[in-house]
């Protein structure tokens, strides 16, 4: 894996890596990808794809019963910063109302 690819992946995860870390990551991630290449040598034509590591399980569903969660003070207690009853965090530079 190239240093440029490591830098891109690190940026996606918002990780700041030193030059040394980038070199180590390129080597380690490269080895993982090489292993995937090796797996690719197998003929998987007849093998159904695995979509999920928990294939074969099914997610349990729960009833639609509303219950109180945390008291507000309790919820905000772990916040590094707050403004009245709102969590306060550094802005990420995107426009308001963003989000998925």
């Amino acid at each position: 894996m190239s240093i440029a690819e490591v830098e891109h992946v690190a940026w996606l995860a918002r990780l700041a890596l030193t030059e040394e870390e980038k070199r180590v990551m390129a080597e380690q991630l490269g080895r993982i990808l090489d292993y995937m290449e090796k797996l690719r040598e197998l003929d998987t034509e007849e093998v159904p794809p695995t979509f999920h590591t928990l294939e074969g399980m099914r997610v349990p569903l729960r009833g639609d019963d509303p219950r109180p969660g945390l008291e507000r003070e309790e919820a905000l207690a772990a916040a590094p910063d707050r403004a009245d009853d709102l969590f306060r965090v550094p802005r990420t530079g995107e426009a308001e109302g963003e989000g998925a």
């Binding site: 639609d64 019963d65 509303p66 969660g69 919820a75 905000l76 709102l86």
Partner: peptide
């Protein structure tokens, strides 16, 4: 729904901020 997608917190609109939250 009366409760959230993955937890039992209520979904009432217009509740005071951060009053319908859980871990």
């Amino acid at each position: 729904t009366a409760s959230k997608m993955f937890c039992n917190c209520p979904t009432r609109f217009g509740a005071p901020p951060n009053s319908q939250v859980c871990p």
